[in-house]
Structure formats: structure tokens, C-alpha cells
Design a protein around this nucleic acid. Sequence first.
DNA 1: TCATGGTTTAACCAAATGGTTAACAAAGGT
DNA 2: ACCTTTGTTAACCATTTGGTTAAACCATGA
Lengths: 203, 203
Amino acid sequence: MKLKDSKTEEVILDAAKVVFMEYGLYGARMQQIADRAGINKALLHYYFRNKERLFDRVFENALSRYFQNMEVLLDESLPIIDRVHSYADRFIDFLTEYPQMAIFLIKEVSLNQALFEEKVKSHIKENPSLIAVINHGIQREEIQIIDPMLFFVNLVSLCTYPFVARPIFKVVAAKNDALWGVEQEISFRSSVHEFINNKIKPL
Amino acid sequence: MKLKDSKTEEVILDAAKVVFMEYGLYGARMQQIADRAGINKALLHYYFRNKERLFDRVFENALSRYFQNMEVLLDESLPIIDRVHSYADRFIDFLTEYPQMAIFLIKEVSLNQALFEEKVKSHIKENPSLIAVINHGIQREEIQIIDPMLFFVNLVSLCTYPFVARPIFKVVAAKNDALWGVEQEISFRSSVHEFINNKIKPL
DNA sequence: TCATGGTTTAACCAAATGGTTAACAAAGGT
DNA sequence: ACCTTTGTTAACCATTTGGTTAAACCATGA
């Protein structure tokens, strides 16, 4: 028998994404998700059994997106330093498109670190890691960098935290008659690339 | 009649701090707080009327602590660049002592930005701002810096995000046979100071 | 010692919430 | 037309949870 090719599942996932992103696993309400999806609450359970399973799916999708932007690192045709610059750009692109994603990950990870580690491990196995690529570049004597892990942390911090703490920065900016918004995106990006150039020395 | 100088209020606030920090306003349970404080749940309401008021007190305390470390900036006896370095150190000291504080602020701010702005405004009025101090230094031609607001965002990102995303970084580090923990604190601090020195030019 | 009033508790309540059930609608195969 | 499977809903249930109440507790001043 042919199944009714219902879009319901997708509609639910979309709604759940929005609600979970904003309120987290505990804060989100099943009724709220059902309302946003325009369906009866029981349908949520019909499709996803329970809240946690629904959340898992949303979280899994978010994680996929989060790791998707790492693929640039594999492009062997580019010098490593270019790949790092692209990586940073993709990272910022990604966060510009899904600004809540970072904070969503942070929030849930801080609540349930074990679950996160389990979920991330499979992704991390399939995906290239910036650090591995850098280490490879060092071994091939293509680049020089003091501490790859520290570089990674610094870089990701520079890229991510402005999105995570945007509301805080907005208040601070307003207080100081400074600007902080889309207008600053270009100089923000430049500052990240400048940081990369300061840290990675081509040989 | 003399009031029993009860420490109950303080005991409750301590317990509430821990629970709210971990689970946030919505995730925290009054019973959980009462249990941790070793008292009856009704006492919470006796002292703080309701959950939101209790949360407000905890949040207010956290905010005070958060702004406390800004006082270095006012020490006119120091050159501005030294004050910035001290500011960064205090910032990291603070987050080392209260690692959950940053993520706690972020989480609650993202849920209720209006409330945060209201609460922060009073603090921000009484406290010096790094940006204001830097602007002052530029005007006095003591230092040169391209974009104070951008510098502020970059600096705070470098200092804060490693604490916010510590669980994520730990997983990444483990995957790459790298280290990320207390042992790296010194080189982490150095990287922040290095960033400051790269950006601020004394005249 | 005992009345007073702040402090603390057990028991309770109403609302919210995740989840279930049973009935119904729709759609396809025969 | 009729049956079977899938999709959808309203009504319901059990539990959780923030909050209330009334009574007990206990230090103190008279």
C-alpha cells in the first residue's frame, strides 16, 4: 500500500526546531510545538513517540548542519592556510544564517554533556577536524603554528561568541554610542582573518 | 521583639544559585532548591514570594559579580594598556571561579532579553566600560586602536567562549589527542594578552 | 510561665504538561 | 462496495509543579 506522502513529519520538525531552539528541551512545550505546526498534540507522539525522541531528531539535524561547514577542510587542492580562512568564513556564514544554533548547542550540551558526547562522536568520526588538518600541514612543513588546539579554541571563540552574546553586546554598544549589527559584519570578518594571519605562518 | 537572625535566606539563595545556574529559570524546580537548602518548599515562598522573585535575586547577584571585575579600569594611576591587560586577567579569573556564570547569563538573556536590558542598565550606569576607557585613551593620544567596539567584542569572545563551550572543546581535544583543561590556562592567558598587544598600539 | 509573633512544616490545591485512548477520517488495494 | 492500513482528532489520565493554608514550633519579652 502506498503511504500518503505526508509533509506532516517535516512540518513538525520545523516547528519543533523553532520552539526547541528558543526554549530548550525542558522549556519547550509539546502543545506549543503542535500549535506552531498546526496539528493536534497527539500527532507529535504518533510520529515521534515522545518529547525526548522528537528533541533528539531536532538536535541531530542541528548537529549535522553544524558539522556540514567543515568540508572545506578536505579540499586538498587548496593551501592549508586558504582552507582555514574558508573554514572561518563558512563558520560565520553558518552562524549568520542560524544565529540561535550556537547557543542552542551550548545550552543543551551544558545540560546533558554525556548525551552530547555520544551524539557528537559519530559526526566527529566522519568529519575532518581543523586541528587534524593543521597538524598535517605542520608535518608537511607547509605551515607553522605554535599550539593548534589553542589556535582552534581562539578562532572558534572569535567566530562564535559574538552570535552567542549578541544581546549583551547590543546593550554594551548602545551604552557607548557604538554600533554592533549587520553593518559591522565586514570588519568583524576582517578581524578574524587578521587573527588567522597573525597566528599561522606559511613556510 | 528581636528577629531571629536566620541564615535561612542566605542558605536559600546559595541553593537557588546552584540550581538556577544549572537548569535556568524554567528548568529549575522549587522542590529541588528546597531540598538542596534543606528546608521546606513553603519557606521559599515565605522568603521570596514566588519563583520569579527568587530568580531575580539570584540573577541580580550574578550580575553584580559580573560587573565587579570592571573596577580595574578606573585606576587612573595605570597606563590604559595595563588596565586592559588587568581587565582581561580579572575576566579570566572571574570565569575560572564561576565557570557557569557566563553560560547562565547567556541562557537567561536569550530567553528574556527585555528583562536583561532593564536589569543591566542600572549596573552599566554605575560601572566603567572598557570602551569608554579606550575612547578616552584615544582622545588623550595615549593609545591607538582601530575600532574600540570590535576590539571589545573580540577580546570578550576570546576570554569567555572557552568557558561557555568547554564541554564541546573537551570533546574536540580528546578526538585530536590534544589537551584542553587547567594545564592550558597559562598559554590561554598568553594568547589573550598577545591579542591585546597586537591590537592596541601605545603612542 | 505564658502570650506574642516571627519561623517552619505537612497537607493540600489548581493549573499545566507529557502522554494515552478510542473513535473517526481518508486513501488504497481487492 | 468493502476492508485494511495510515493519519488525525477530542477527550481523558497521571504526574509534576508552583503556590497556598492552617497549624505547629520556638525564641523572646513581660
